[in-house]
Amino acid sequence: MTALDIELISFWAALVGYSLATVIAMYALVFQKSPERTLFVLLLLPWLLHTVAIAARWVRIEHFPVINTFEMLSTNVWGLMAAVILSYCLLPKLRMVAALLLPFVMMLTAWMLMIPSDASALPATYHTIWLFIHIGFMKIFLGAAFVAVGIAMVIFLRSAEIGVESLSRLPTDEALDVTAYRCMALAMIFDTLGVVAGAIWAQDAWGRYWSWDPLETWSLVTWLAIGLTLHVRATFKPRPSANAMLIVATFMIAVFTFFGIPFVSDALHKGAI
């Protein structure tokens, strides 16, 4: 069996698993069921298969597969699924939140399936350890913000009186707000580390730590949005629904930075593209 065979089989098996997990998580939320063990297996097993697919691709193309659009989406789906699984383990009372997060992962997966999956070529300046450091921190940041937005969505839906009954098994808005704040604090730390690692890489590779290219600019805007969200919560102590709104808005900016900018800009720094 070749590396390509392993990659394709693992990849498609992972996608089927993710789809099943999404359906079961949403079913459990709507009909107030608790298939926690089944769902955990359906999250973990496909994620492990996805890990195998990425590793096989790495072996096949001989570099870290984060360069073209397909690879960027694939590794981001992998990172977001890792965040869902981690939150599933670490926050057992919030397992239902997975039902709100997985549809977004499925949207990214659908997008990934609509684009060519050709092997990428590694640009000259990407032969550096900073590629792993920068991307690693950014993936953790997006994962932490993703979990925060899932929790914020619960508060948001409750305040809009949508699915109140289904969401009633979850903790109070105030308790959810504290956990969302923690996730955003983690996001702030790792976004800062990611931006700084990127700046050090740029300084090393091009002699400039900042060039105001669109991706850098939007990563700064994302950082400022996280800072604003944390500052507002710490200083003005607003209601959980207001915090939730800020977290959702911040995540939307982060999504635009990660998935929007690389497609509208042809600047040198195009993230993973």
Partner: peptide, 30 residues
């Protein structure tokens, strides 16, 4: 810039570790 950034990041991490991840354990969910 690198030196000051390192100080800033370490301070940020220690601040959140103390304030968010240690002191507010009573409010922890899950």
């Amino acid at each position: 810039l690198i030196a000051v950034t390192v100080i800033g990041i370490v301070s940020l991490i220690v601040f959140y570790l103390k304030r968010v991840f240690i002191q507010s354990t009573q409010e922890q969910v899950g």
